[in-house]
Simulated assay, not measured.
Amino acid sequence: MKKISILGSTGSIGTQTLSVVRQHKDLFKVEAIAANNNDELLEKQINEFQPKLAVLYNKDAADRLQTRYTGKTKILSQDAGLIAAAVFDDVDTVVTSLMGFAGLRPTMAAIKAGKNIALANKETLVVAGELIMAMAKENKVSILPVDSEHCAIFQCLQGNDKNRVNKLLLTASGGPFRGKKEIDLENVQVNQCLAHPTWSMGKKITIDSASLVNKGLEIIEAHWLYDMPYDKIQVVVHPQSIVHSMVEYIDGTVMAQLGSTDMRLPIQYALTYPHRMESAAKRLDFWNMVQLTFERPDTQTFKGIDLAYEAGRIGGTMPCAMNAANEVAVEAFLHNRIKFLDIYSIIEKTMQAHKVIKDMVPEVFFSVDASARNFACKIINSI
């Protein structure tokens, strides 16, 4: 039985991970769960899965839970709680699905503690990919991708020599504004951005998908996961979201992974690899599948992809600055403080002002993240 810890258990990936566990109770035991501030849902998860440790990062939420909970699960809070869940003794695999930069510190702690990582927090590799991959190698732990695109690439690489890869093809739905131009996006509202055509996700990643910044972050993630140069990573818009990604080999063969738009599939594969198990996910019906289409992304309107290529190629702490600016900008947009297209200018201006540091030590990333956030906030306040 695999013993797991889930960081971000009340979010979209966390709840779907628990759905996988629920289906395969004989394979998994949840030993620790952690969330931000949803004490009511976390309490339900505690009662169902009986973990030994539960964490609410928000201390007020943890205190609320403590006042009414009488069971055996230990309740912790704040950074110390997250780290405790990441390094919990009985755990062999940590599902890292915390949102954004917040996932970096507990992921590093889990790796240092020798835990295998089921990675749903792409920002960890975007921000500190070189450091994280070196730490994983040093501590002899595996990092298995939970993102549908990177799980697809991982599967397409099985049984093949990575040196024979010509190109990684990351697919993108194109989001709710595919085909729109800048003039069409000047006054789009939050609810329009959250209406993703094919996937059901959390608010932040859904906004990132609308701007295609999410696909940009996935480019950087793929670079580190598969040690692939940026000129061998290409984005292809595929509106149906059936082909989750592809790998082109030097002989012209293209391997593709297809499946329904159900995150339980990549989550389960990351947890059961190298084995495949039964899944509750809907099966594809090829007799009734009308079409699969592919097109070039519009990078002039949706600048997130090119901004990520630029940040990745510059390297050092530039992706960290880019990610920080994006997180601040998306939060501001969700609270109606800026317009949708302002997200790009905030990222661009922050990157232009950032002085790149090449020293790959943890303290640098936390410092750069803080300073980039502060700079992005000043831009927002001036809008």
Results as ranks from 00 to 15, higher is better:
residue 349 K to S: 04
residue 306 D to M: 12
residue 368 V to L: 02
residue 97 S to P: 04
residue 235 V to K: 11
residue 334 L to Q: 09
residue 31 E to P: 02
residue 374 N to M: 09
residue 269 Y to G: 13
residue 239 P to T: 11
residue 92 D to K: 10
residue 93 T to R: 13
residue 106 P to S: 14
residue 333 F to Y: 11
residue 330 V to G: 12
residue 60 D to G: 04
residue 76 L to C: 14
residue 267 I to H: 00
residue 274 P to E: 00
residue 23 Q to T: 15
residue 34 A to F: 00
residue 71 G to A: 03
residue 225 L to A: 09
residue 46 I to G: 02
residue 180 K to H: 05
residue 3 K to G: 05
residue 106 P to V: 15
residue 328 V to N: 12
residue 237 V to C: 15
residue 381 N to Q: 04
residue 328 V to A: 04
residue 49 F to N: 02
residue 210 A to N: 08
residue 217 L to C: 06
residue 352 Q to L: 03
residue 187 N to C: 02
residue 281 A to H: 07
residue 218 E to H: 04
residue 298 D to W: 12
residue 53 L to A: 14
residue 353 A to H: 11
residue 281 A to D: 05
residue 158 Q to E: 15
residue 145 P to M: 06
residue 18 L to S: 06
residue 355 K to F: 13
residue 56 L to S: 00
residue 313 R to S: 10
residue 293 T to F: 12
residue 344 Y to W: 08
residue 374 N to S: 07
residue 40 E to N: 06
residue 307 L to A: 04
residue 166 N to F: 14
residue 152 A to Y: 15
residue 230 Y to M: 06
residue 309 Y to Q: 05
residue 69 Y to W: 02
residue 223 H to A: 01
residue 53 L to C: 02
residue 289 M to K: 03
residue 234 Q to N: 10
residue 19 S to P: 07
residue 109 A to T: 09
residue 237 V to M: 09
residue 222 A to I: 07
residue 173 S to F: 10
residue 103 G to K: 13
residue 290 V to I: 14
residue 140 K to T: 03
residue 245 S to D: 12
residue 345 S to L: 06
residue 164 R to H: 03
residue 38 N to L: 11
residue 4 I to M: 02
residue 29 K to F: 13
residue 91 V to D: 07
residue 293 T to W: 15
residue 37 N to V: 13
residue 202 G to R: 07
residue 381 N to V: 09
residue 199 W to Q: 05
residue 253 T to H: 10
residue 175 G to K: 07
residue 216 G to H: 00
residue 105 R to E: 14
residue 302 F to D: 01
residue 7 L to G: 02
residue 321 A to Q: 05
residue 183 I to V: 04
residue 348 E to Y: 08
residue 332 A to K: 00
residue 252 G to T: 14
residue 367 S to F: 10
residue 99 M to Q: 09
residue 76 L to H: 03
residue 212 L to Q: 15
residue 322 M to F: 09
residue 315 G to A: 07
residue 290 V to T: 15
residue 262 D to E: 12
residue 128 A to F: 07
residue 121 N to I: 09
residue 203 K to P: 02
residue 14 G to S: 00
residue 93 T to Y: 14
residue 101 F to I: 03
residue 375 F to R: 00
residue 3 K to P: 11
residue 38 N to E: 04
residue 300 Q to C: 15
residue 317 T to D: 09
residue 136 A to Q: 15
residue 134 A to S: 05
residue 51 P to S: 02
residue 150 H to M: 13
residue 210 A to I: 06
residue 32 A to S: 11
residue 379 I to H: 03
residue 79 D to N: 09
residue 247 V to M: 05
residue 227 D to W: 10
residue 80 A to S: 14
residue 284 L to T: 09
residue 96 T to F: 00
residue 286 F to Q: 14
residue 269 Y to L: 01
residue 142 S to D: 13
residue 145 P to W: 12
